[in-house]
Every structure is written in C-alpha cells, then in structure tokens.
Design a protein around this nucleic acid. Structure first.
Lengths: 347, 347
DNA sequence: ATTAGCACTCTCGCGCCGAGAGTGCTAATG
DNA sequence: CATTAGCACTCTCGGCGCGAGAGTGCTAAT
C-alpha cells in the first residue's frame, strides 16, 4: 500500500470526519467550502483521485463524491486519528455518576453501557468482570424448606452463582452451615477439577453438594462470560445505513446471540489493529459477514489474572472513532480501578 | 358497539388470521378463494362493509382490502380466539429443555425468553422472580483483602444481591462470619425498615454493615424488578411494519428503557383485557404512544406473596395472538412450578 | 504545481400512465 | 329476502422519461 502525502492524509481525515457527520458522499467543492481550504476544488480533486487510486477512498458511482473504504478507515484509525482525550467536564460527570452507584456491580455495568452508548451514539455492550479461572472463594448453603437448599457459590474475584438443590433427606440449617464451612475450608482456591479431587475427603452429606458445585464452577467454559449488558440499540437504528432493515437485523442478531459475542472476544486477543488496549474491527473484519457495514470497537478492563471484562461498541463504519475510543479508554481505566479496589483477593 | 352476526364473526376471524399471515390488506375475492368459502365475494363484501361500519375493520384507502382495527383485534382476542393449547410435542420439548438447565435461575430466564421469542416470532421480555416484599433471609460477609469486604444478601425468595464495602479497620474472616451470623439472627425475615429498628442491638462492627444492608434491601423500590431478559429483538425488525425505522426505534427504545417497562408492569394489574391471567394491550393501549403500531402480551408467573415475575411479548399488532398466549400460559405455569418447588420458604 | 473552465456522467425526484386489485351498487335470481 | 353476477369506479404501484443538480476528469492557462 502506497504512502499518501501529508496533504493527502489531511484530506483523508477531513473526508472521514465529514462523512461521519453527514453520511453522504463528500465532493471536492463541498470540502473546500465547508472547511475554508486555501486550495481550489480542482487541486482537491487531483488529490482525491490519487487517494482513490491508492484504495483509501471510493466512489459509489462515477459521478458522486468520495467515501472512505475499509482500508481508508483502517489507515485513519491506525495512523491519522489524533487521540483526543475526553473533556474534563465529561470525565468528572462520569466519575461522579459511578461514585453514586453504591458499589453494586450490576449498576456499574448498566452505567458503563449507558455512558458508552451515549458518548459513541452507537450500540454498546459490556460484560461483567469475570475471572479467567474460576476458583472457589466461599460456599454457602441456605435451607429454604424441607429438603430444598439454596447453594450460593462465591468465586475468587467476587462473582456469584446460585443453584437450587433438593436433598435426599431434610437437614437443619446448622448442619448445612457446618457442611458449607467444611467444604469451603477443603476447597478454597480450588477450581472445578481441584474440587473433584477432594471428593474422598467429604462426609456423606457434603457429597450431595459436590456435583452441583463442580458444575457451577465449570460453567464458564460453556456459557457466556457472565451477563452481557447492552445499551443504545436504538442508536444504531437511527443511522441511515441501518434503515435497510436487513442490515439492522444482522447487526441485532449478532448482539443478541451470546455465542457470537463470545467468539468475538476470543479473537480479540490476537489481532493486529490494537490501539493502546483498544481494538477496532472495521467492516466486520475477521469473517463477520453479518457486520460488513459495521465497525466494532473492543476494549478490555479489569485486573489480568483476577477478573477482566469487555467493553464493546457496535456502530456504522463511519462512527466517530475518536470519541468512541477515548470514552472506552477512560471507562476501561475507571472500571479497572473499581475492580482492583473491590475485587482484588490475592496478596 | 354493535354485535356482529355469527357469519360476520367468522369472517372477522378469517381476516385477522389472513392479515397476520400476509401483512397485506385482505380482499373479498382473495378470502373466498383462499379459504374455499361457499359464498360469493359479493356476499363477503356486504358483510365486510357491515364490519367496517361497526368499526372492526378499516380500509387503508378507498379501494384496498380490509385490515382489522384495534377494536377488531380487541374483539378477536376477547371473544373470538379459540384457546388452542400448545401441541404436546412442543410442551414436551420445552419441559425437557428446562429440565436440562441445572436449577440455575439465570438460565431459566434466558431459556424462557428464548422460547417465548421463538414461539411468538416476536420480541420477548422476562423478568426474574422477584419478591413483593424484600426481607432478609441470610447475610454473608466475605473478606477479600485487607479492609475490603464482599457482602452477599440473600433475600426471602432466593434473590441475591451483592455489595462491596470498605471497613474502617481490617477484620478477620472469623469475625466477619460471626458478625454476619449475628445480623442474620437478629434481622431474619425483616425488611429494610425492620432492619433499621434493630440498629441499637448491634455491635460496633456490625453497624458498619447496616446501612449497605438497608440499602440493598430497599433497592427494589427504585430500581427495576431485577434483571430483564430480552430475546427475539431481531424478530420484530423482520416484520414489515418495522421496516420504517422510526417505528422500530420507538419499540426498541421502550424495550431498552427499563423504567418504561416498570411502569408497564405496574399498570398490568388493573386493566380489563385480562384473558385468564394473560393480558393483551393492543396498539399501545393505555397511553403508550411509542407502541401505537404494536401489541403487548403480558403475563405473570410465580407464587403471589413470595416471588413473582413477568413474561412479555412485544410484536406487531397483527401478531399470532393465539400461539403467543398459549405459549405464555404454558410457560407461566411451568415457571410457577419451578418457583414453587425451589423458592418456597414459608410454611 | 495549481487552477479555471468545460464537457460529461450519473443519481434523484417528479410526473405520467397503464395494469391490477378491490370496492360499492344495481339488477337479476332462487 | 338473502344471495350473487356484472359493472363502473377508485386508488395504489411499478416502470418510464426527463430535467436539475452535483461531481468528476481532463485540458489549457498561469
């Protein structure tokens, strides 16, 4: 890929910006007038022709304005975009909102999704902080009625899972508490496999809880990484590229289908378009045919080795990458701090 | 409102059915041919004219076929629709799927939403079972690091809430467990107000947990009734009435906005279009301007007085009410049993 | 290297028109 | 008297043509 000149890069950035604003192909005359360029439209035309030749721009038809190609966006995101950090007032507002949230993970996630959707004017997705290995922190057994028991499994990192069990015999709450304590002591810091190895050490009563416990710990392998919080879905429907409902349906299906999102996170690690912890997938890069019209910005947060979560924004290819990325980076830092402050468990 | 004749009712039902199938205004000739009626199209025309006069049908324009009015749907749902119960095979499949779900509430909810969306071919929403009054069942305090503590609040009915706290002094896990036990004993079966009255009975250490606990118990008053599970959003985008993205956006916004959904559930109780526990709101009945094109089917499940949840389906006004309602009724029964079996706590 | 000028191309919106579908009405019929 | 065949009428919808507008590439002049 040929390297554009300084002026060509400048123009490319302008077109990306203008197209993001208007969603209409942008022409040379328009560009000159709207940005008070001190060159003529003919000069601009020459440069645009060059950029088109290089593959960064394309024309929807012979005589329309220019639109950035995927390649163009990639170049813009990777080399052109200046990292505008979020305005101080916005940062303060967001920080303040989080401080109001009473240390409730659920509310944090909702707020994060909401902020991300609002700032990016696109759809956002946030996953709750999730440990990379699920090891038991604490087990609690609560009698509900007769042989019914509620099992609460607290995982290292703070995640909580629950199961309902029916015992073969009624048992008192005292016995349950004692059993829970025993299991907790024997299995603390163990993952599902580790718990299984302890099987021989348990009392007959405790054995009734082992299978559900093992299963609760092992669950993460199959199921989505915890809850997925979505917000701003109606934002993307407002964009002209999604008025064609076929496109909109595809995008929505991706967001609904948790398995797809998981795949996506899995691939997050190994790609090359990393921007300081934030990844940008343009035009369904990497085989996401359903997202051919869209772009996806993905970031992670949390404490590696303890618990991490994912932030994502799905929007049209012409989304405001700058604002989206800086918001995401800010949120990622903020959430990472929250995770570190509250969830950290190893010393 | 005038009472239609037997034959008119028959034709009204046919039109509702046919319009649900094709989404196009249905004409007399079409009706006669497609359903092999043994009357002429002229006769049908006369009857349709009468039904139009009565307000059950309308014509999009002078010379188009007929479309049911809201009034027409209301009449259909209230008096015409025969309650087809779900085929046995479907019932068995669903029951089987639930039995696979390992007693995990989260998975039940997801499955319920998925089944409801699939059967109704529309968007579904399901709320987790939620106690009408939130009273403490069990409190657990888990030390995470230094002064950090994870508070797990189990509510009568099985719901779980968590908070992260920072204590003024580091405390051992033993002390925490003892304190949690003490609080549990003093406050079991109490709601947030009840907990507050016990304040004087607590040790200094215990006092640090009271405010967060009161707040966790009181939360339900402000926040949505637990998690809301959505599914099938892409279904409604597939419907022709939502290709006009403006309509689609409105509907989506309603589903996203949790506060709106809450309002909606609040009104659920007092309306008149009840069908054996399932309610049908047609055309945004009751002041839901954003849902003017849509209908909403709402049902509840659970054990009144202990924990209840809501099932909802949002789709175009011409949705398949029969299938939707019977699915919802079946699911409601199934979930109610699950709640009763696992969550019941009072004797 | 830049730019004014110009011929050329393509889309988009508009109005027109004929086909098709459906209606209401009237008159005939069992 | 209910039903129905026949018919004139109305309205939508898709295709077509056309002119305006926007944008381009090219050439020649600066």
């Amino acid at each position: 890929m040929q390297e554009p000149s300084e002026r060509q890069r400048f123009l490319l950035a302008l077109i990306v910006h203008e197209y993001a604003r208007t969603a209409a192909p942008v022409g040379s005359r328009n560009l000159v007038e709207h940005y008070n360029l001190d060159m003529s439209s003919a000069t601009v035309r020459n440069e645009l022709a060059a950029l088109t030749e290089m593959g960064y721009l394309r024309q929807p038809h012979t005589s329309a304005g220019r639109v950035p190609t995927e390649e163009g966006y990639r170049y813009f995101v990777g080399r052109l975009m200046q990292e505008t950090s979020l305005p101080d007032t916005v940062r303060h507002t967001i920080t303040h909102q989080f401080s109001q949230m009473h240390n409730d993970v659920d509310q944090w996630m909702k707020l994060a999704a909401s902020v991300l959707a609002f700032q990016s004017r696109a759809a956002s997705l946030v996953t709750a902080p999730h440990p990379e290995v699920t090891r038991l922190k604490h087990l609690e057994l609560i009698s509900t009625r007769g042989r019914q028991v509620l099992m609460v499994v607290v995982i290292v990192g703070g995640e909580i899972r629950q199961r309902f069990l029916t015992l073969s015999e009624p048992v008192t709450q005292e016995q349950l508490s004692a059993t829970a304590d025993a299991i907790t002591r024997l299995c603390q810091e163990r993952d599902s496999a580790g718990v299984r190895t302890q099987r021989s050490a348990f009392s007959e009563l405790a054995l009734e809880f082992i299978d559900p416990l093992v299963e609760a710990l092992g669950q993460s392998n199959q199921t989505a990484a915890g809850e997925i919080y979505l917000d701003g879905l109606s934002n993307v429907l407002a964009e002209p590229e999604f008025t064609n409902s076929e496109e909109a349906r595809r995008a929505l299906r991706v967001l609904e289908e948790r398995s797809v999102l998981q795949d996506l996170l899995a691939r997050t690690v190994q790609t090359n378009n990393l921007v300081g912890g934030v990844q940008v997938l343009i035009g369904g890069e990497g085989g996401w045919d359903d997202l051919r019209q869209s772009s996806l910005v993905i970031g992670r947060y949390g404490v590696p080795g303890l618990a991490t979560g994912t932030l994502g924004v799905l929007g049209p290819m012409r989304m405001a990458y700058g604002r989206t990325i800086s918001t995401m980076r800010f949120l990622s830092g903020l959430l990472s701090n929250l995770v570190a402050e509250t969830l950290v468990d190893e010393e």
